[in-house]
């Protein structure tokens, strides 16, 4: 048993030495050689201590260990990919929010209305060459009032999910704004957007109050 073990071990080492001398012939000479020598050194250590591991503890399997560490590294790469996607989402949402703020400021500066609800739909596919272009702008306005209560209501306008917003809007009592042309023209000029992509509504309930 012990002799068999030592015999196998010696055979392994001898084969390994021949294998490495053969490898040395194939290796390119140059700066790379140091790195390859280091890895060959690891290989020698593993071959020398491998039988002892089997002898001491049968649970350890070096090949499994390597596979787990390869998987671990692959997972880390995947994680960094998902971080990139998250970052892209954040960039998009920051961009939309800035756009909304800008439109809101423009309207409030140039007209007598306040923005109650503002939906901006942009091209969100990063692969698309039109990425970031505005697809549609939907505005719900209300009359400007000095009431603090109104200001509070206005602050609630920035929701992130456009679809949800659209559904919510159905519950609002709104109508087409008659003198919307001016506002549409302001936005259309600012963002170089066709006027049919901009819809402006008036929040009747708020106007009546």
């Amino acid at each position: 048993m012990t002799i068999e073990f030592i015999k196998n071990w010696v055979i392994d080492i001898v084969y390994m030495s021949i294998f490495i001398s053969f490898l040395e012939i194939v290796l390119p000479k140059g700066n790379m050689k140091r790195f390859i020598d280091m890895i060959i050194g690891f290989l020698i250590i593993i071959v020398v201590i491998n039988p002892f591991i089997k002898f001491i503890n049968k649970d350890i399997d070096i090949e499994r260990n390597i596979f787990t560490s390869i998987n671990r590294f692959n997972n880390e790469y995947k994680e960094s990919d998902s971080i990139e996607a998250l970052q892209q989402d954040q960039i998009t949402s920051v961009y939309i929010n800035k756009l909304k703020e800008d439109i809101k400021d423009q309207i409030e500066y140039n007209s007598d209305y306040k923005v109650s609800v503002l939906n901006v739909l942009i091209v969100e596919d990063t692969e698309d060459e039109d990425y970031g272009q505005i697809k549609k702008i939907e505005l719900v306005l209300e009359y400007k009032e000095e009431d603090i209560k109104d200001k509070d209501i206005i602050k609630v306008d920035n929701t992130k999910e456009v679809c949800v917003k659209l559904n919510n809007n159905k519950t609002l009592n709104r109508e087409e704004l008659k003198d919307s042309e001016k506002i549409v023209n302001i936005i259309s000029k600012q963002y170089n957007l066709p006027t049919d992509r901009i819809s402006v509504y008036l929040n009747r309930k708020m106007a009546g109050e």
Binding site: I39, I53, I62, S69, F73
Partner: peptide, 20 residues
């Protein structure tokens, strides 16, 4: 690139030695 390829071997060897 060679270092990246060698990392799994290095890590496995380290784990092995610490386990022994």
């Amino acid at each position: 690139i060679i270092m990246v390829l060698a990392i799994p071997i290095l890590m496995a060897l380290m784990d092995l030695i610490f386990e022994i």
